[in-house]
């Protein structure tokens, strides 16, 4: 067979090869994003995502969306501008959360016996789905960054509230009031994570009374817009094919 001859002999065979190629790329992309995004999120979100007694209404709400909108923006840039596939954010977050669940179940519970109800991951999926839908409908990076980024920040807390609310029920314990989440952190001993390391309920949002979560969510959304732009450009740069000869892109 010469170099000019096709590797396939029929259209059906071409379609079959193309699908095989799809699954290979999809699997590779999924696992690569799972690994990279997971490391990134553990290093930047870390304890806020690990423990229920870190999931507060100020810093968790602020930090988690900002540091997690990164890979969705970058993968969207690649999959949308190269393939018109509006699944970059959802694919990234599904990969991340599968990796997190494996980690929490196998390591936190299976290895060190922390109950899963103290160390489950945050839910990032509602924001990711909305981010993909806005990109598909708007076909605009700017619109996705501004509207999608803001929505990603705003949806985070309400998207997680059904999961964490039961753990914010108060309890009186030896003369002190705390939430069940606080009690989990106190009961289940973490030798290397003393109480003072917890960064919760710190800040200057005191003039908003008890309603600080929406303010934190708005702030998180605004910063997410900037981070979206930044990582979207990372994704476009990373998806270039300059290394292939005769490719104009």
């Amino acid at each position: 067979m010469s170099a000019s001859q096709s590797a396939v002999r029929s259209r059906a065979e071409a379609v079959q090869v193309s699908r095989t190629f799809d699954w290979m790329i999809l699997f590779t992309l999924f696992t690569a994003v799972l690994g990279g995004y997971h490391i990134h999120y553990m290093l930047t979100g870390g304890d806020w995502d690990f423990w229920t007694d870190w999931k507060d209404r100020r810093l968790w709400v602020t930090v988690a969306p900002i540091v997690s909108i990164t890979f969705p923006a970058a993968v969207q840039a690649c999959l949308w501008w190269r393939y018109r596939l509006p699944v970059g954010a959802t694919l990234s977050v599904v990969a991340l959360m599968i990796g997190e669940w494996i980690n929490r179940y196998m390591n936190f519970w299976g290895w060190t016996y922390f109950p899963v109800n103290i160390c489950f991951p945050s839910n990032l999926l509602p924001g990711a789905i909305v981010l993909d839908v806005i990109l598909m409908l708007g076909n605009s990076m700017t619109l996705t960054a501004v509207v999608g980024g803001l929505a990603y920040g705003l949806l985070f807390y309400p998207g997680n509230w059904p999961v964490i609310a039961p753990l914010h029920v108060p309890v009186e314990y030896n003369g002190m009031m705390m939430t069940l989440a606080d009690l989990q952190g106190y009961h289940y001993v973490r030798t290397g994570t003393p109480e003072y390391i917890r960064m919760v309920e710190k800040g200057t949002l005191r003039t908003f009374g008890k309603d600080v979560a929406p303010v934190s969510a708005f702030f998180s959304g605004f910063v997410s817009i900037i981070i979206y732009f930044l990582w979207h450009f990372f994704g476009r740069w990373f998806a270039k094919t300059d290394f292939i000869a005769d490719d104009a892109s």
């Binding site: 209404r57 509230w161 609310a165 914010h168 029920v169 002190m176 939430t179 008890k210």
Partner: peptide
């Protein structure tokens, strides 16, 4: 789901620190 959760858990408090 947020509304239903607030109805189911009307009493919640912030983390204590």
């Amino acid at each position: 789901s947020m509304g239903a959760t607030n109805e189911k858990y009307p009493v919640t408090t912030p983390l204590q620190a």
